[in-house]
Design a protein around this nucleic acid. Structure first.
Lengths: 167, 167
DNA sequence: TTAAACTTTCAAAAATTATTGAAAGTTATT
DNA sequence: AATAACTTTCAATAATTTTTGAAAGTTTAA
């Protein structure tokens, strides 16, 4: 495979994987592009490479910044803004896990807590509802704490935890 | 909060959470409905409760069966089919993790392996590309193996691994 | 202060994804 | 074999999400 072809394949695969970590295609592709770039890129260059509009580029870059995985680079003497992404995969994974937890998992845990706390009126239906939503709440809470622990270990968290697990 | 209200809130929250585990709203809602039901439900009952069409119900139930989290229950002497979902949250989580890995993560790992194996032509761009995609491949591979290990522990896998980790 | 170089916003359009409902298919019963 | 009771399929439609592009906004420099 040629470099150009490999690059396109990588960007497109990473883009379609966006759903896995809850972001849209363009956002994931911009991140992918920056991730394999040797230097920060301008809006113009991103538009050009990915064949997307200025508006789309602007909005998605802003979102990536909001997620904390892309930052502005100011080149002295240059007017335009350049962007680069976190290059360390472990750090990247940490940030993504942390953000997904905060944005999606935690609100759901709150809802589960709420609905599992309704008054038990003694009917089988209510008993089942409380039992099952409580179980889900416990699981979600446990999984989220685990993620939290992992995520707070800056260095080699994944490898370390895998090692501990296998042991 | 009243039972009916709590149930609706639970089903709707679980439905919107569908994206988190990569399935659509109706599919997640059907699963949620079955999850808190005291008995298996027929297509008719699902349609009624969720206000969705017969076709939609049929297709999504079939997909849930395909995922391995819903099964047909045959009631003796009855013509119609009844459906129920896996009621154990840990088992449910295991199945979901396993399926997502198989359907989405593993194909991506394969692509990462492929694109990171291109010939190094000595340019900085190619070197960076290989380095970064290799790092991503390693991370994805490690994370997926970890998931695999967890997922193969039938009993209390999450709690166990959390315990080990904290230790 | 004005103009140039850039970024952001957002309503409209396009693309994608989900849903419907009726027809076709299947299975069990008489 | 015919009918009834169900399930599945799929083309059409609806809903949702993404993308565009041009106008508005901002910043820097002359």
């Amino acid at each position: 495979m040629e470099m150009q072809q490999a690059k396109e394949k990588f960007i497109s695969t990473w883009g379609s994987l966006g759903t896995l970590w809850g972001i849209n295609k363009a956002m994931a592709q911009i991140q992918a592009l920056l991730f394999v770039s040797t230097k920060p890129l301008s809006t113009e260059e991103i538009m050009e490479e990915l064949k997307i509009s200025r508006g789309n580029t602007s909005m998605n870059v802003r979102q990536l910044i909001d997620w904390g995985i892309v930052s502005k680079e100011l080149v002295p003497g240059e007017r335009r803004e350049y962007f680069s992404t976190e290059k360390d995969v472990q750090e990247l994974a940490r940030i993504i896990a942390q953000e997904r937890s905060r944005r999606e998992i935690q609100p759901v845990i709150k809802t589960l807590e709420e609905v599992s706390s309704i008054k038990d009126d003694g009917t089988a239906a209510t008993k089942e509802f409380i039992k099952q939503t409580k179980a889900l709440h416990d699981l979600a809470h446990t999984a989220d704490s685990m993620l939290g622990k992992l995520v707070n270990q800056k260095q080699n968290w994944l490898t370390k935890s895998l090692f501990k697990f296998i042991k």
